[in-house]
């Protein structure tokens, strides 16, 4: 196939313990480490492996957000993507709007395969890939842990609650990644240097004609209820007694 498109979102790094602002107006993101959403790294890794196997010509990495998303796109280029597109906007997009934007890019680029993460670990929505597939009127294979391509079709193993489900979809299609699909490569310093020369196009969101009005209004952010710290027991006898006291065994 010609092209694979991969969507990467800039999110608070998974190691950061996110805190709610005292006034409940949001979470603290100033000065915290930002990264590519982990599932999107897996998406990009998969696309690169497909290209390296000779089954695709080009990998395009795209992101929607403010200009600092360029950092994550540069990382994507350093991992091995051929070129990058940033759809620039200062607004927070809901998944439906993100899917509408990605559809516009699909219309421009005509990729045969579009890979997204199964969820962005900031809002934990898990929607964008499914919405994109619906708007594009193409198949979706979500939560993928294995992806095989053969003449115009993809056979995808999906991690579902009951185990592993295998489906076959016609291309073009949207695939979203689960953790076990692959282990993303580390970026090496020379690759970072090389990536500086790779093309990174910026498209203002307004040029794509997608509205960003939020449908859902967030009226408050609160910290989660904390569990009380419990007791420590000395040994197995103590554990069994504590369980019996609570009527649990």
């Amino acid at each position: 196939m010609q092209k694979i498109m991969v969507a990467v979102k800039r999110v608070v790094d998974y190691n950061v313990r996110v805190r709610v602002k005292p006034d409940g107006s949001g979470v603290v993101t100033d000065g915290v480490k930002m990264s590519i959403n982990p599932f999107d790294e897996i998406a990009l890794e998969e696309a690169l492996r497909i290209r390296e196997r000779g089954e695709a010509e080009e990998v395009i990495v795209v992101s929607i957000g403010a200009s600092d998303c360029q950092q994550q796109l540069r990382t994507g280029l350093a991992m091995g993507a051929d070129r990058a597109i940033l759809v620039e906007t200062g607004d927070r997009l809901e998944p439906l709007a993100a899917a509408q934007v990605l559809l516009k890019l699909i219309e421009r680029e005509s990729p045969e395969l579009v890979i997204l993460g199964k969820q962005a670990i900031d809002d934990d929505n898990s929607q964008t890939g499914q919405m994109l597939a619906a708007l594009w009127d193409r198949p979706q294979a979500t939560f993928a842990s294995k992806l095989e391509l053969t003449d115009g079709k993809a056979t995808v193993t999906r991690e579902v609650d009951a185990g592993l489900e295998v489906i076959e979809v016609d291309l073009p299609a949207v695939v979203t990644t689960d953790l076990r699909l692959n282990e993303p490569r580390y970026v090496k310093l020379p690759d970072i240097m090389k990536a500086k020369k790779k093309p990174l196009d910026t498209v203002p969101l307004a040029d794509l004609g997608v509205g960003t009005d939020a449908q859902f209004k967030i009226t408050n952010y609160a910290p989660p209820e904390q569990r009380q710290k419990g007791i420590m027991v000395e040994d197995v006898a103590g554990l069994v007694k504590a369980l019996k006291d609570k009527g649990l065994v």
Partner: peptide
């Protein structure tokens, strides 16, 4: 749009849901 993971219903169009791996809970209209 779609709302994910309703954990509490406050009204027919007001809900609470977790974000950031449960590090925050938002109220959504």
């Amino acid at each position: 749009g779609q709302l994910s993971d309703i954990m509490e219903v406050r009204g027919s169009h007001e809900f609470r849901r977790p974000i950031y791996a449960g590090n925050a809970v938002i109220t959504v209209e």
